[in-house]
């Protein structure tokens, strides 16, 4: 984890702990981007710029970021499933259960915190 020298003695399993935080890292990225781009969009007048069918550029960007992060979180399922197959024993069962729980929780959390972009006014207040 700390160096670039490959070594046969080095256990690789510590790296698998990344699966405990992968889902919520996607969540965090979504949160930061939604908050940041929203602030920029309202400040730079994206709300007044029409995109398609009456949706502003601002809202289109926010919904795009929102859906992309939900998709990215859900897409973690494939590599997680592939990796978890190589985790042996009771420790592997634990790591897999915890990772699956956290990945699902992270996707739900992403859906949850970003949902207001779908129905609230974008720059009011």
């Amino acid at each position: 984890m700390t160096d670039a020298i490959p070594s046969p003695a080095r256990p690789v399993s510590g790296l698998h702990l990344i699966w405990l935080v992968a889902g919520f890292s996607v969540w965090a990225s979504g949160f930061i981007l939604l908050y940041g781009l929203h602030a920029l969009g309202c400040r730079w007048g994206w709300e007044e710029a029409a995109f398609l069918g009456g949706i502003s550029v601002n809202r289109a960007v926010l919904i795009g970021v929102y859906l992309a992060h939900i998709a990215a979180g859900a897409a973690l399922w494939l590599p997680l499933h592939a990796a978890a197959k190589r985790w042996p024993g009771e420790g592997g069962v634990f790591l897999k259960s915890a990772s699956v729980l956290l990945t699902v929780a992270a996707v739900v959390s992403t859906i949850w915190i970003g949902a207001p972009v779908l129905f609230l006014a974008a720059c009011a207040g």
Partner: peptide, 11 residues
């Protein structure tokens, strides 16, 4: 609460 808060904003 969320729509309620929005309804209190100045327009």
């Amino acid at each position: 609460a969320l729509p309620s808060g929005q309804s209190m904003l100045p327009r």
